[in-house]
C-alpha cells in the first residue's frame, strides 16, 4: 500500500484486490480467501476524540487479526496495532479517519475495528 488513500465518495467504503494498487472506489465483493484491502472513512464522533483508551482498545482488537491494519488522519499514518502510533494521529472530535485493513482476514476485522473508531463515547471514564 502506498500513499494517502482517498475517501471513497458517498459509499465511504471500498475493497481493493491485493496487488492491484488501485484506490478503492466500490464495494466489490471478493472471495473470502483472497487477500484484499478494505477501506472505510470513519468520522470520530466521540466528544473526546480518538483518545488514549479508545486507541488502546483499538490496538488490542487489531492485534487479534493477522491482517495489516492502518489508520490515516489526513497525511498522518498509524500502524493500527501500535498504541503510540494511534495516539500520534491526534484525531480530534469530528475528524474523518480512514481505516485500511489488508490481508486474508480483513473482512472479519473491518467491522469490529470500525465499531471501535466510530463509538460515540459517553463512557464513564476520564480520557
Amino acid at each position: 500500500m502506498t500513499g494517502w488513500p482517498s475517501a471513497n465518495g458517498p459509499t465511504r467504503e471500498g475493497t481493493t484486490p491485493a496487488g492491484t494498487g488501485a484506490p478503492a472506489d466500490t464495494d466489490t465483493p471478493v472471495e473470502a480467501t483472497r487477500a484484499v484491502t478494505h477501506r472505510r472513512t470513519i468520522r470520530i464522533v466521540n466528544p473526546l476524540g480518538l483518545h488514549f483508551r479508545i486507541a488502546d482498545r483499538f490496538a488490542r482488537a487489531a492485534k487479534q487479526f493477522a491482517c495489516v491494519v492502518t489508520v490515516f488522519n489526513g497525511p498522518t499514518r498509524a500502524d493500527g496495532k501500535n498504541l503510540m502510533d494511534l495516539i500520534m494521529l491526534v484525531a480530534m472530535p469530528g475528524a474523518e479517519v480512514v481505516l485500511e485493513v489488508d490481508g486474508p482476514d480483513a473482512p472479519d476485522a473491518v467491522e469490529p475495528l470500525t465499531e471501535i473508531l466510530a463509538s460515540p463515547g459517553g463512557e464513564n471514564y476520564a480520557i
Binding site: 476524540g49 480518538l50 483518545h51 503510540m84 495516539i87 491526534v90 484525531a91 480530534m92 472530535p93 480520557i127
Partner: peptide, 12 residues
Amino acid sequence: PGDHLRALEAVV
C-alpha cells in the same frame, strides 16, 4: 480534549 490529545502526542 484537543489540548489533551496534542499533549499526549507531544509526549509520545
